[in-house]
């Protein structure tokens, strides 16, 4: 019995062997590339900070609404979708849908991506559906960002 078990084990080990990939040691190869990129980014950030300093407008005045008010650029799509969606569905108000869809549903879907996409292949040609969904989501975000700027 034990002999058979040992044999099985050896066969399994052999099968796992070719999965290994060629690699370069973390130090210095990987780290060197990382440090070069980090220096470039840090330099660019200092350059941008000196050329375009962070702004400071008038002090906050709760009784005087300025126009236009823009949220941070990464929230514009939520803002845009809220303006885009003007249809009530049954008893649910349009405003509630306009807020819930881009925040709750969108992030919920993002969290669940690995559990929805059960396709084991990581070859881009064999994941047409996932790639198409990704491109649609991306275009949607871009469109609603654009929408929020135009329809201000």
């Amino acid at each position: 019995m034990s002999l058979i078990e040992i044999e099985k084990h050896e066969v399994e080990e052999e099968r796992h062997e070719p999965v290994r990939i060629r690699g370069l040691p973390f130090f210095p190869h990987f780290l060197l590339r990382e440090v070069v990129v980090m220096c470039l980014i840090a330099g660019s950030l200092i350059l941008m900070a000196s050329l375009y300093p962070a702004g400071l407008l008038q002090p906050a005045d709760p009784f005087n609404t300025p126009t236009p008010i823009y949220p941070e650029w990464y929230f514009l799509y939520v803002f845009g979708f809220l303006k885009f969606w003007t249809w009530n569905i049954g008893p649910i108000e349009a405003k509630v849908i306009g807020v819930t869809l881009p925040m709750v549903l969108w992030y919920g879907l993002l969290f669940l991506v690995p559990f929805i996409d059960r396709n084991p292949s990581s070859d881009i040609r064999k994941r047409k559906f996932a790639v198409a969904m990704g491109v649609i989501a991306l275009l949607g975000i871009l469109y609603f960002t654009y929408f929020s700027i135009v329809h201000h």
């Binding site: 407008l57 002090p59 005045d61 005087n64 929230f75 939520v78 509630v96």
Partner: peptide, 27 residues
């Protein structure tokens, strides 16, 4: 980003936060 936007307490931060909390409030 959202929490840091309010801290300078200028017109933009105040009113953007007003809209932001309003949006979060209607979930």
């Amino acid at each position: 980003g959202f929490s840091g936007y309010l801290l300078p307490w200028d017109q933009l931060s105040f009113w953007a936060t007003k809209i932001g909390t309003g949006i979060a409030g209607s979930i």
